[in-house]
Amino acid sequence: MIILLLASLQDVTFGYGDVPCLEMANIEVHSGEFIAVTGQNGASKSTLLKLALQLLHPWQGKVNLSPTNVNGDKLAVAYVPQQIAAFNSGFPSQVTEFVRSGLYSQRLNWFRRLSPDAKQAADEAMKSMGVWELRNRRIGELSGGQKQRICIARALAMSPDLFVLDEPTTGMDKESRKDFYKLMREQIDQHGKTVVIVTHNLTELDGMLDRIISLERREEGGWKCCTTTSCSGHFSPAESLR
């Protein structure tokens, strides 16, 4: 199995305004890993994800995001943010339309229409997230948990190489959370995907994770640094780095 370094942060420092919130962060994300990012509220977990995805630019240090996947094709990334403002602004869209939008960057034909295969992928994703029955509803009418589910369904429909999920299980019941974690593990084991997830429920992920990245407060100041814990389980990044 070929393992690729998909994303890395080297000695990254970042802050908002003049106040640094993340200092000297060093992180590596390899293909085929299931990584949890954890830390207290305000510990810059979402900021860390945005830096890794190059949505934010660091003050110092280097951020690399691989342009290709293990097969040499363009790296496909699905990002599920913690909150999307448009959900609350009466955005006129149906669930099906929203889930299919995940495929708009990759699977459009010359007439800018989705192929039947792409539509089927979106349908499958809706079914696997239990939102099939909501497919004709307007997205603004959905509850918080349902909105999270359709966001995950959109990510699944994309069939990306890398899932980046910021607290995706907010509003889900325990059983749905377990099903969701199992689904993510299957994506890694059966389809070679990579998952980075921000979560507070580490106990529910017991036995599924490869690594945990914790954001902790530094003793000398209010800044945070990252520590990585390898979990007993699935993968050792040192074995065959390309």
Partner: peptide
């Protein structure tokens, strides 16, 4: 693409 950009620029950017 305009649908995606109008909905959420960050998700649109990460999806390519």
């Amino acid at each position: 693409p305009l649908y995606m950009v109008s909905f959420d620029e960050e998700s649109a950017r990460t999806s390519g």
